[in-house]
Design a protein around this nucleic acid. Structure first.
Lengths: 224, 224
DNA sequence: GCAAAAGTGTTTCCTTTACACCCATGT
DNA sequence: ACATGGGTGTAAAGGAAACACTTTTGC
C-alpha cells in the first residue's frame, strides 16, 4: 500500500493587546495566491523537527519575535483538501500570547486589530477561521487560567491586567471586585514591592506573574 | 524550494462507559512495530479527504462503529519526528464519545478499561499519551458541556447520567443535588414522558438529549 | 484643595452543599 | 410491610455583584 504524503505547515495566531485593542500579527501578501490579503505567519515544518519546535522557529523567522518568552500552545489542525489552491496542505495552528512588542522589522509583518481582520479585511486561505478560533480560545482561557498575564510586560499593575481582560473580552469589569479576585488567587500575582504612578492617581503596586496555571475560582465573563 | 512531505494519519480515542468503567476502543497489534501492544484505531488520510471525514471513515472501517451517531471532535496533533520508527508521521487525534455498543466484529478490536491501558499495558507509539490527553479532555468537557449524554443510550434516567459522571471522574456525587442541577439546566434533558424501573425502586423518568451544548451553570468536579 | 486612580469594607443575592424527608414501585 | 432507589424541601456556607468609602499620589 502506498501512503499519500502531504505538506504540513505550522501557522501562528499571535495575539497581543496594544493601543486598547486586541491585535494579531499578520503578513501582508504581495504575491499570489491571495495577493493583497492578509495571512497568518507560518511555514512548512522540517523533516526532523517537532511541531512545537517548528512553531518556535517560525515565531522567530516569520514573526520576528526572537528570544522572547511567549506563551505558545497548539490550537487546532486544519486540513480540508482545497484550502490551499496549489497543493494539499495540512496546517497545525499554534496560538501565541505576547506582550506588546515591536514585531518584525520587515514592513510586511505587522500588528492589526483583530476586529478589522475578521470583519473587514480579506483573508488568505482559511486564515480568518483560524484567527477566529484562536481568539475564542484566548477569550475562554482567560476565564480559568492565569494566561492574561502573558499579555502584560514583566511588571504590571492590577489595573493593567484588568484592562487586558476588558479589551480581550470587550466588556467592562468592576475594578474593585476584580482587584480582590486576582490578588486573592493563589500564586497568580507576586508583589514586587515597587509601585508606579504611570496610570495617574494613587500609586499602584507592581506585580509579576506567579507560577499558577489555573485560576480558581475562575474569572467568569459577564453574560449578555 | 522543495517542500518536505509527510504521511498524515488520523488516530481515534473512542471512549465509552461499560460495566462501571471508562473504556477505550483499542487495536491489539499482532505484528511489528510494537507487536503485542495496544494501539489506537486509525489510519492514513486520503489525498482528497477532509480530516473529520477521515475520522468518520476510520471510525467505521477500523473501529467497526458504522451508522452510529457518535460525538467526534478534534483532540490534538502529534508530530515529533521519531514517534513512528518507520517514517515521519504526523497524527491528528480525534476524540469520540460513544454509548456502550458492541465494537467491531473483529477479534482484534476491543473495549478495554482505560485505567488498565494507561497504567498497566504496553502502548504502541505515543498512544498512551494521546489516550491520556483524550481522557482528560473528556473529563474536562463534562464540566461545562452536555457531552455526558453522549455516553448514554437514546433514553436514559438521571441516575444513569449521574453514573456516567461518577465513572468518568472517579468520584461520587450527591444524587439529589445532581438531579436538581441537570433537570434544571436549560435544554439539557428532554423528558420523554416514559418511566423505567430497570434500576429498581421508584420508577425513574426517562429523558433524551436536548440540544444544549453548554451546561450553565457548570457541573464542577469535586476538588480533592 | 481637587481630581484621579488604588484599594478596602459591607450588604445583597445567588449558587453550592449537606442532609432530612417524602414518593412510588417490586417483592 | 419494607427495601430500594427517585425525587423535593430547606437551611447553612461561600462566592459573586453592587457600591459606599478611604487612601495616596500629581497638579
Amino acid at each position: 500500500m502506498t501512503v499519500p504524503r502531504v505538506a504540513v505547515t505550522v501557522d501562528l495566531v499571535v495575539l497581543t493587546v496594544r493601543e486598547q485593542r486586541l491585535c494579531a500579527l499578520v503578513w501582508r501578501r504581495d504575491r499570489p495566491p491571495y495577493a493583497g490579503c492578509w495571512s497568518l505567519p507560518g511555514g512548512f515544518i522540517q523533516l526532523d523537527e517537532d511541531l512545537p519546535v517548528a512553531a518556535s522557529r517560525l515565531m522567530a523567522e516569520r514573526a520576528g519575535l526572537r528570544d522572547v518568552r511567549i506563551h505558545l500552545e497548539q490550537l487546532a489542525t486544519y486540513g480540508y483538501p482545497d484550502r490551499d489552491p496549489r497543493q494539499r496542505v495540512v496546517s497545525v495552528a499554534y496560538l501565541g500570547l505576547a506582550p506588546d512588542l515591536p514585531a518584525s522589522s520587515r514592513a510586511q509583518v505587522l500588528w492589526r486589530a483583530v476586529d478589522d481582520l475578521v470583519e473587514r479585511e480579506e483573508a488568505a486561505f482559511d486564515h480568518r477561521r483560524i484567527l477566529r478560533d484562536g481568539i475564542e480560545r484566548a477569550r475562554a482561557k482567560l476565564e480559568y487560567t492565569s494566561l492574561a498575564a502573558a499579555f502584560c510586560p514583566p511588571e504590571f499593575t492590577v489595573a493593567e491586567l484588568r484592562r487586558v481582560y476588558e479589551i480581550v473580552w470587550g466588556t467592562s469589569l468592576d475594578p474593585r471586585n476584580f482587584h480582590r479576585k486576582v490578588t486573592g488567587a493563589d500564586r497568580f500575582l507576586i508583589p514586587t514591592g515597587r509601585t508606579t504612578t504611570r496610570d495617574g492617581g494613587r500609586p499602584a503596586r507592581l506585580y509579576r506573574r506567579g507560577d499558577a496555571e489555573q485560576l480558581r475560582p475562575p474569572m467568569l465573563r459577564p453574560r449578555t
